[in-house]
Amino acid sequence: MAIEVKNIVKTFGSFAALDNVDLKVADGELLALLGPSGSGKTTLLRIIAGLDWPDSGEVAIDGENALSRGASERQVGFVFQHYALFRHMTVFENVAFGLRVQPRAIRKDEATIRARVKNLLDLVQLDWLANRYPSQLSGGQRQRIALARALAIEPRILLLDEPFGALDAKVRKELRQWLRSLHNEIHVTSIFVTHDQEEALEVANRVVVMDKGKIEQIGSPGEVYDNPATAFVHGFIGESIVLPVDVAGDAVRLDGRPLNIPALGAASGAAKLFVRRHDMAVGPAGTGALEGAIRHVRSFGPIQRAEVALSGSEGKTVIEIDAPRDRELQVGEIVSLQPRRYRIFAAQE
């Protein structure tokens, strides 16, 4: 089911959690809300679920006004960060809960409920845990049970709040792939909230990057990584080298010295130059836009990561670059650096 959010405003006291947010989610999408803590992503998710109410704005699920219904009437599957499994119920009863509380008129009989719960436990591959209690499960198992419980009500949409946040790195990786394949299997429109860019880029079809209650960029994982729309997105997603520069016309200057790179249409004045670590080409001294002395080199896998103290900054500006290992860099060597791809954003604040 498609979701449409329009002009949502939500404040907590004087803090604007959501500042005029618009978002359209297409049917069957797997969307990530990505942002640092306090960016409003969880609040947006809770508003869609009906667990929070906006101060103003509209929420439509499948074209119908969701704000006219309470959370219990929206048929929205919600998976909580800390699972929120019912601790006094077995895994089986947890999953069956949504079916047992249905109004008597539409409630299924016991045999149907049992069959359905069994199917769901099979789907999350945990049917063997049916009689355990939540406290007897590992974090990853709890998360999958929480998902099965949310799916039991045949939700129109599925919302996941930091679904892997409380898990250790390895389990998190497995569950990510598993969530992707599960989504391919059941195709329910899903939104998940995360502060982990890798998670968002790896799992979602589309990524919504949020900061301070506003949406900074919406795009495919490739788009937000390769063409960040704002300085925030460039800095938040992927590792970036950030240098304070001055733009005058088409000329870019760092610490007063001209860099021979075009300004790419950035407005004149103070600005920031963003370059990905691996987009900095290393060459012999005197051939590139920047120059510096290598202070430290670490080699691992296909790359070598070098710390370079830029000349002209009295060694104060140190950047980290990733270079391929075709030519081993030496500590103390003077090299030139040329950004292959870069973006210049006007400095804010």
Binding site: E73, F97, G98
Partner: peptide
Amino acid sequence: EEEAAISLGA
């Protein structure tokens, strides 16, 4: 847990 119950339709 209450929020979970409500979102499940209780």
